[in-house]
Computed example of a mutant assay.
Amino acid sequence: MSFAFICHHNSFLIYDSLKEPTLSNWAHVTHVSVSFAVFVSLVFATCGYVTFRGYTEGDIFENYCSDDDLATFGRFCYGITVILTFPIECFVTREVLANVFFSGKLTTVWHAILTVIVVVIAMSISLVYDCLGIVLELNGVLSATPLIFILPAACYLRLSEEQRTHPDNLLSSLILAIGVLVMVVGFVMTVLRPQECVHGKEMPYCFPGNSSLYNNTPLYNNTPP
């Protein structure tokens, strides 16, 4: 969540796309969009956990049985959404390549060629690996945490002319310490306990006679009773 919401790589492109790119408009857009995203995430997480309890997966679609037509339609809609959203994630890479190798000036032909190359390479790599959860986890602890907590706090402490006991310096020191702790603990936990994938695996309650199995599952236990 930290990496996605705070270190969004499309921030500058989105800011420049505003009709009136002012700080007040930018604040309004970011607060509304992030608040809506958090609300949707909480609704899905709560509904998923209340329904499946200890069997709840990070990808809620993995909890539905293969013969559930409504869930299959949901997967189809989600796939269309990803197909239409995925190229946006490659725009920043294309922008960097255009600035480095073409001085920021691309013809229409090279614009299309470079876009296709970036999308195809990223898609090819993703198709080789089934579980990419560890990538997001490492991005969060090694990229988001330093950018959000460690570097800003360290820069403030370095440039501050106030005494070390000043409340702002104490708060910055606390944020810095928490950031270092989160980064170290998060990295160790990610390496020692990597996220497992169950793509395509049928849950026990999908089999005949076990339809109500998940109702008796302990709240904080991810293994079948």
Rank of each mutant, 00 (worst) to 15 (best):
D59S: 11
V43G: 04
D69A: 15
E95Y: 12
S2F: 10
C47K: 07
P21I: 10
L136W: 03
M183Q: 15
S35G: 07
N210A: 05
H28L: 15
G200Q: 06
C206H: 10
M189H: 09
N63D: 07
K105M: 05
L157F: 14
I178F: 15
H9I: 09
D168N: 14
L136F: 13
Y49C: 08
T85Q: 09
V100F: 13
V180E: 01
S35A: 09
Y55G: 07
L142Q: 03
S103D: 08
V120I: 13
L84P: 00
S35T: 08
A27S: 12
L170I: 14
I113L: 07
T56P: 02
A112G: 01
L127Y: 06
F102N: 11
E20T: 14
N210Q: 09
M183F: 09
A144H: 07
K201W: 02
I88N: 07
S173D: 12
Q163R: 15
I117T: 08
G200Y: 10
F76M: 04
K105Q: 13
V135E: 00
T165V: 09
S212Y: 14
F101M: 08
L192Y: 05
G186Q: 12
D68L: 12
N210V: 08
I121Q: 02
R158N: 13
D69E: 12
V188W: 00
P218S: 02
S41H: 02
T165Q: 09
L136D: 01
S35V: 03
I80S: 03
H166E: 06
Y129D: 02
S11N: 10
V96P: 07
M183R: 06
H199D: 10
H31N: 14
L42G: 15
L132C: 06
P218A: 03
D59E: 13
H9C: 04
V34D: 04
P204R: 14
N63V: 13
S172D: 02
P204G: 01
L176A: 03
T81A: 12
M1C: 05
Y78V: 11
V109H: 08
I6Y: 04
V198K: 13
L157Q: 10
M123A: 15
N10L: 12
V182S: 03
H199T: 10
L132S: 04
T46N: 07
H166Y: 08
E95L: 14
G140S: 03
E137T: 05
F12C: 00
F52W: 07
P152R: 04
S126H: 10
S66L: 13
A37Q: 01
C65F: 14
G79C: 05
F101Q: 02
V191I: 15
M203D: 02
H8N: 08
S35M: 05
K105H: 12
V50I: 11
F187E: 01
L114W: 03
T56R: 01
F39Q: 00
T22L: 02
G186I: 05
P208Y: 11
F91Y: 14
A4G: 02
Y15L: 09
A144P: 03
V128F: 06
L23V: 07
F149K: 04
G104W: 08
E20A: 07
V118N: 01
D68N: 11
T85A: 15
W26V: 10
V50M: 13
L13T: 03
V198E: 05
P204Y: 12
G79H: 05
S124D: 04
V198P: 00
S143P: 00
P224H: 00
F207Q: 11
T85N: 09
L114E: 05
L42I: 13
Q195A: 07
Q163D: 15
A153Q: 08
T165D: 10
G48N: 05
